[in-house]
C-alpha cells in the first residue's frame, strides 16, 4: 500500500488497478476466496426456511398424544395407600370411561389434523420454489432447442 501514489488529485481507478497488480504479483495478505455476485440471490433470499414438520413440538405431539396409559393408576406395592389408589382409580375410570374414550379420540384427531396442516403448509411454502425450478427447467429446454436449431443451420439472432 505504501507504493500507491499520493498525488494531489487521486484517480480512484488507478488505485484499484495498482491494488489488483499487487495481488497479481502474489503479494496479497489474504486468502482470496471468490464470493459469487448476486444473480439468483434476490429470488431465493428466503430459502433458509425450516419445514414446519421438523418443529420439535410437532414431534412431541406425535410421541405423547396417546395418554391412555396415564389414567391407569397401578399404585406402588401392596400397602394400604396403593390399594386405596387402585380402588379410587377403578371407580373414577369406570365412571368417566365414556369421557376418556371421547377425549382419546379427540386428541388423536387433533394430532392428525395438526400433522396434516403442517405438511400442507410446507407444501405451499415450497410450491413457489418448485415453480421456480420448473421455470428454469423450461427456459433451459427452450434455449437448448434454440441451440440445436442454430447447429442445424438456423438464422442469426437479431
Amino acid at each position: 500500500m505504501d507504493e500507491l501514489s499520493h498525488d494531489d488529485a487521486l484517480d480512484a481507478g488507478s488505485i484499484v488497478e495498482q491494488l489488483r497488480s499487487l495481488v497479481a504479483e502474489g503479494r496479497s495478505e489474504y486468502p482470496r476466496t471468490w464470493m459469487p455476485r448476486a444473480t439468483y440471490e434476490d429470488l431465493v433470499v428466503d430459502d433458509g426456511r425450516k419445514p414446519i414438520h421438523l418443529i420439535e413440538s410437532l414431534h412431541y405431539l406425535h410421541r405423547h398424544w396417546d395418554m391412555a396409559n396415564s389414567r391407569i393408576c397401578k399404585g406402588i406395592g401392596w400397602g394400604p395407600k396403593a390399594l386405596v389408589q387402585r380402588f379410587l382409580s377403578r371407580i373414577v375410570n369406570g365412571a368417566m370411561s365414556h369421557y376418556y374414550a371421547e377425549e382419546q379420540a379427540f386428541r388423536s384427531n387433533v394430532a392428525r389434523a395438526i400433522d396434516a396442516i403442517a405438511y400442507r403448509v410446507d407444501n405451499i411454502n415450497y410450491a413457489d420454489q418448485r415453480a421456480l425450478l420448473g421455470a428454469v427447467r423450461e427456459d433451459l429446454i427452450d434455449l437448448a432447442r434454440h441451440v440445436e436449431h442454430r447447429l442445424d443451420g438456423g438464422g442469426a439472432d437479431r
Binding site: 491494488l19 499487487l22 496479497s28 476466496t33 464470493m35
Partner: peptide
C-alpha cells in the same frame, strides 16, 4: 471479490 474488498477498505 471479498479479497479486493478487504484491500480497498484497508
Amino acid at each position: 471479490d471479498v479479497g479486493e474488498l478487504f484491500d480497498a477498505v484497508r
